[in-house]
């Protein structure tokens, strides 16, 4: 009986060769446009067809827009290393269905989870600290089901497992933060663009309020607190969901009349720029949200997102 023998040396040699070939193949076959986008700071993928289909037809569009936006900043390989544990942090704030645009679009979240795995992540966790009852909110937002089907571990933030941390902000010195999030190799912040009674709009910076507890006093100086929190969280990459946006009665909404279909997704490394773009999507000026203005002033990013290496992608 013949037997194929693999020595360790043989194995290392062969796998190195295979790896070289794979690397070479990528550089050979990748579209040339992609090379220029490798260092893009921000990408906006927009559905450019006159008609934006609603309902079930919106799902493949949300998936494609997310893929294009991520592709537009050079793919998740830029942020995810082989074997990473990634926390995808959507806005799962309220017990509302996806149609009411009070939470991040579940298809955007699921696509991100898939892209993380494709980029080599070992595990992807999805979770937020909802304002409404967590189990109901995870369910009705559609995010739990979508993320799970994409292979993510859906995590409920346990109130008894937060840890008080000294974040050394100007306004916020100590705040209980969920340790499991910080222990991840990468946090991808993926909020929805929506109206907020106090701040006019809630986007990326405000979404970090979902990693903490004792957040109710933040509202008294919301911009100061968000700047402190954002600086502590050190955002690497954010994705802003503008598939459906909530134009009024935010952040909880509940009226389908307040929802507008925009079919656009942005991704980027500059959180302030993304928030400035989101404000425009809401019909505000880029400086219409105070936390964006302060983030810009304190050097967390730039409000002038057009000055960045911007990649605008039309999808139809």
């Amino acid at each position: 009986m013949s037997e194929i023998k693999h020595t360790r040396r043989d194995f290392i040699a062969r796998s190195t060769a295979a790896g070289m070939i794979a690397l070479g193949a990528e550089s050979l076959f990748a579209p040339s446009a992609q090379a220029a986008e490798k260092n893009a700071d921000m990408a906006i993928a927009k559905w450019v067809d006159q008609r934006i289909p609603g309902g079930a037809e919106l799902k493949p569009i949300a998936v494609e827009l997310t893929e294009k936006a991520i592709e537009g900043i050079g793919g998740l390989n830029r942020f995810v290393t082989q074997g990473d544990i990634v926390w995808v942090k959507p806005n799962i704030g309220w017990d509302r269905t996806p149609e009411l645009a009070a939470n991040t679009n579940p298809d955007v979240v699921a696509t991100l989870v898939r892209l993380c795995y494709e980029a080599g992540a070992k595990k992807v966790k999805v979770g937020d600290n909802p304002c409404d009852l967590a189990k109901k909110t995870y369910d009705s937002s559609g995010i739990a089901a979508a993320a799970e089907s994409a292979g993510a571990e859906v995590v409920f933030l346990d109130r008894n497992r937060f840890r008080d941390m000294a974040i050394g902000g100007k306004r916020v010195k100590n705040i209980p933060i969920y340790p499991e999030i910080l222990e991840c190799d990468l946090v991808i912040n993926v909020p929805i663009v929506k109206h907020h009674g106090l701040t006019n709009a809630t986007m990326c910076m405000k979404n970090y309020m979902g990693v903490i507890e004792n957040r109710r006093t933040f509202h008294q100086a919301i911009a100061d607190c968000l700047v402190d929190l954002t600086r502590f969280m050190k955002p690497q990459v954010c994705v802003l969901d503008g598939i459906r946006i909530l134009k009024n009665h935010g952040p909880k909404g509940g009226n389908s009349d307040d929802v507008e279909l925009k079919a656009t997704v942005a991704a980027g490394i500059d959180i302030v720029a993304l928030d400035a773009w989101g404000a425009e999507l809401m019909g505000l000026k880029p400086d219409g949200v105070q936390s964006t203005v302060q983030g810009d002033a304190l050097g967390l990013g730039t409000m002038n997102y057009r000055a960045l290496n911007l990649n605008e992608i039309g999808v139809s």
């Binding site: 509202h219 009665h249 009226n255």
Partner: peptide, 22 residues
């Protein structure tokens, strides 16, 4: 109530009000 008594913004209650028209 903080906005009345202490002259600061707050609005946590408004944010949580579940009635669609607030």
């Amino acid at each position: 109530c903080i906005p009345y008594a202490y002259g600061r913004d707050c609005m946590v209650c408004e944010e949580h009000c579940p009635v669609p028209d607030k």
